[in-house]
Amino acid sequence: MALWTLFGLARGKATRDGPDAEAPVRDVPLGLPRIAARDCAPDCAACIASCPTAALTASEPGEGQAGGTRIALDYGRCIACQRCIEVCPADVLMPGHDRAPGVRRREDLQFDPHAHRITAQVQELMARRFKRSLHIRHVDAGSCNGCESELQALLNPFYNLHRLGIFFTASPRAADLLLVTGTVTAPMQEALQAAWEAMPEPKWVMAMGACAISGAMAREGYAGGSGAAAAIPVDVYLPGCPPTPAAIMHALLLLLGRSRQRLHGGRIDG
């Protein structure tokens, strides 16, 4: 056992800087697509046809608005597969390098080029009630195990979630946050609701990953569900497939009022 300690000490600090310092972390994959403020070619629906999760729709200008058809994108469904970017003939859809940002309202994941930009900040609902620590009960309600893999990564020495005062707990009775992954299949719905009911007030729910937000690939099948919001009220939505550990950390700190929401009305700040 002495050797473990010796080698551990010799290697030095393994934990990344941050999380607030946006230090270069090599975990930002090919990110969510971005959409240029341009009209699409007439009758082009290549991206809409290519999207495996129906995240893209055509958006027509409203009354009194100029311009033609543009593309609306629901980040809550997007799995960042990059297919729309590959097929877009006019570079309206472009590769993004943003990690998936967490939001407090489902609408903030919906980008519609013809909608007015939402400028009003959402009330600080959480009001820093969990200022010091946060205990999480995770429930897998029908995931592919990708989200679990990245959640487990949060506990490795590189991300070291504990240093932020955030812990996973076994009992829902000791939990502040229910973190849901997966589409919520019929057999898991009951267990999910039981876990939520067992939690003391105040309690919050985070839907993590495209499946828990919208059902993504398995949406509306004979067995797949359509996300956590159909079963329990959701307070934070974290898109991505799967969200990277840094994105999960950002969303957890958002809940604690220790990070800033970066996506409003489907538009990423700055």
């Binding site: 495996p52 897998d140 309600a141 029908g142 995931s143 997966g182 589409t183 299949t185 057999p187 898991m188 267990a191 690939m217 398995a218 099948g221 004979y222 067995a223 797949g224």
Partner: peptide
Amino acid sequence: LFLKHRGMEKRFEGL
């Protein structure tokens, strides 16, 4: 097992 069965094989149909 199969509480997480998402019917993935069916989702391939027609794609």
